[in-house]
Design a binder for these strands. Structure first.
Length: 671
DNA sequence: TTAGGGTTAG
């Protein structure tokens, strides 16, 4: 066996050395079974003509079992309809088992009305016939009809209960699902029949998880233990998931550790829950452990791990996951490819994201959205709009989310007319409703361009109440154009909506500071103090040689502090010679200019960039990540630094990427 | 012949 390619993952391992880790490659998948049919023959018609309904149903059932990627020769829905209509018109009475199988084929392939017709035409029905139709309505999301049918059932068994229970849980009605679970327990006791089994238990757990309700979850847990369903991996996975989603990650891990036969889903779920709870490193440890134990990850696992890499901007690790995926093979239509595109975009490597995207033979809407948003965030606005045009040409129907991506690209690049055209096309050409996000984007677009009257007009006319994103966009535009009146209005709306968010106070204070209105700045500061609003400390980090280096403003804790400050001072001197003027507007406090410069000079992003310059080879791009938005002065300074040092510098802040090269930024200062 | 757990885009 070859060594595991994910060296980095194994280096994260707590217990096993990387050299010991290895995984077996999956065996090559067998070609899917297929039928040799000449196009002129329709086997279903031929079989039905000869009254061989049983074989026709067998053939169709076989086809349905093929994996989605296999070439399917028969259309299940129309073939099943043909069998049903031939059987009914021939007057042949199908044996009940066969009729039920046909009913299932119809119900699950979207031919529900035909399934109903067949059901109604049956001279005899058993509980399986009822369950099958019930599952059909549940599958189609017609819960009202499913419930009506359930109420009318002459007999119910555990299939009936688990079908109605999981239907409500899956369709966003977990409270109803739990209600059914309680009714089922009552019915079990009353009639002496025991309906609960591992299926109803796992569905009920999924419902308690979706609420989420720890109390119900624990009750179900007790019931599971009492009933002895503890040997089933699915029940245990669902139990672990319930604890994690109810905020008890340690209990979830405890349950997970006790699962005897953990399968890929159990692993993927537990790893994902660590990521959800913010314990991303724990998630990575568990992923590496899974690989070491030889459990083959699947698309769900990859998608989850890649998403975590995106959040932490861990491109190195993401790349290794990509390599692993390539090695074991993944389909060009796989949804984990979207996660790859997203990961590379979020790590600032839009070129690689684009290569991966272009490797997809038929990208789906999520993949298009990933690449369009990725381009938008990385300052490749023209590319984003080009991809959007290609999306429309491909015949894929855009949804409301993808419009957010392309509109934000237009807003960031100042494509006003194009952005407005696209905004209006949402309703006029694509028959979609505008969402509050679309309004926020168009207000962003107009206010960045200083077109405040139009922005205000849109706000007055919009059918819903403006949300915090819209006001924040407007406030940002006002800061850019020093619009005091509207800035105040936007800030006050934000204070109402999210009084605890320091960013709005700081931006308003910065607008006052830029206008020299120090009394107002002081008032804002006092309000913040009175309300106990705490400014989130800015921090920046950079990954060098697989280690993260984190910096705060004026940070002197780094082992290389002396070198960093010395180099930064050199840059400052050279920058000033080349015309850099510190933009002191961005400092909240009313202090002397010299002191203000001092505050600015050691912002976390500058420290991280300078450390990157010192610690990495000349030809590698420097990638810095900041938890807040980059400050305007740092933006100017880093442009100078990129020219002086001849380095490519990429800064990902809380809202977008800035690619600095030869004194320019990809955002063209329009941010 | 009918029922259960994990996923990607703003």
């Amino acid at each position: 066996m070859k060594p595991l390619p994910l060296r980095r993952l194994c280096s994260l391992s707590k217990t096993v050395s990387s050299s010991a880790a290895a995984v077996a490659l999956p065996s090559p998948s067998r070609p899917p079974p297929s039928f040799s049919l000449s196009p002129a023959q329709d086997p279903i018609t031929l079989l039905c003509d000869r009254g061989r309904f049983s074989e026709a149903i067998d053939l169709l059932s076989c086809q349905r079992r093929l994996p989605p990627s296999a070439p399917r020769r028969l259309d299940i829905s129309s073939s099943a309809r043909r069998i049903a209509s031939a059987a009914i018109s021939s007057g042949v009475s199908l044996p009940l088992v066969l009729a039920n199988r046909l009913l299932d084929l119809l119900a699950k392939s979207g031919a529900l009305p035909d399934a109903r017709l067949l059901f109604d035409s049956l001279p005899h029905r058993d509980v399986c016939s009822w369950n099958t139709l019930l599952a059909g309505y549940s599958f189609a999301g017609d819960l009202d009809e499913a419930k009506r049918l359930f109420d009318r059932m002459p007999d119910r068994d555990h299939f009936s209960w688990s079908t109605i229970l999981s239907a409500h849980s899956r369709r966003g009605l977990p409270g109803e699902a739990l209600h059914f679970y309680r009714s089922m327990l009552r019915a079990s006791n009353g009639k002496g029949a025991i309906f609960s089994n591992r299926f109803t238990a796992s569905s009920a757990l999924a419902a308690a998880t979706a609420v989420p309700c720890l109390r119900h979850g624990k009750e179900i847990h007790c019931h599971i233990v009492r009933m002895g369903f503890d040997s089933d991996a699915i029940v245990w996975s669902a139990l672990s998931d319930m604890y994690a989603k109810c905020g008890c990650i340690n209990d979830a891990r405890h349950v997970f550790d006790r699962i005897a036969d953990k399968d890929v889903v159990s692993w993927t779920t537990m790893i994902g829950r660590y990521f959800d709870s913010g314990q991303r490193m724990e998630g990575f440890y568990l992923f590496s452990q899974m690989l070491r134990l030889g459990v083959q990850p699947n698309e769900f696992t990859f998608a989850g791990v890649l998403d975590a890499c995106s959040h932490l901007a861990m491109e190195g690790l993401g790349r290794q996951v990509h390599g692993y995926m390539t090695r074991i093979g993944y389909g060009p239509l796989s949804f984990s490819v979207s996660a790859l595109v997203h990961m590379y975009s979020k790590c600032g490597n839009i070129e690689k994201a684009s290569v991966v995207f272009k490797g997809m033979s038929r990208p789906d809407l999520v993949s298009w959205t990933s690449i369009i948003c990725g381009c938008a965030q990385n300052g490749h606005s023209e590319e984003a709009t080009r991809f959007f045009d290609l999306l429309l040409q491909s015949g894929t129907k855009p949804d409301q989310i993808v419009f957010i991506g392309v509109l934000s690209a237009c807003a960031h690049a100042g494509f006003i007319d194009k952005g407005l055209r696209i905004f209006h096309s949402i309703k006029d050409e694509h028959s979609l409703e505008h969402t509050s996000d679309h309004y926020a984007c168009v207000v962003d677009l107009l206010s960045r361009a200083g077109r405040f009257e139009e922005a205000e007009e849109i706000i007055e006319k919009m059918p819903m109440k403006p949300d915090k994103f819209l006001w924040a966009s407007l406030l940002g535009g006002c800061r850019l154009h020093k619009n005091l009146r509207l800035g105040k209005r936007a800030a006050e709306a934000l204070f109402d909506l999210e009084p605890e968010n320091a960013a709005s106070y700081v931006t308003l204070a910065n607008i006052y500071a830029a206008a020299g209105m120090w009394d107002e700045v002081e008032k804002v500061r006092k309000t913040m103090d009175q309300l106990g609003v705490i400014k989130k400390p800015g921090s920046s980090w950079i990954e060098v040689k697989r280690k993260f280096h984190v910096f705060l403003v004026g940070d002197k804790s780094h082992p290389m502090t002396e070198d960093i400050y010395m180099q930064l001072d050199k840059f400052n001197k050279r920058m000033k010679e080349e015309g850099y003027v510190p933009d002191t507007d961005y400092v909240l406090h009313d202090v002397e200019d010299e002191q203000k410069e001092e505050n600015l000079a050691y912002h976390s992003e500058k420290l991280a960039v300078v450390f990157g310059i010192i610690a990495t080879p000349q030809d590698t791009p420097i990638k810095v990540f900041k938890n807040l938005r980059i400050c305007g002065d740092c933006h100017t300074a880093i442009k100078f630094i990129s020219r002086i040092s001849r380095r490519i510098i990429i800064v990902r802040d809380s809202s977008r990427f800035h690619h600095f090269k030869e004194g320019m930024c990809s955002c063209r200062d329009y941010w």
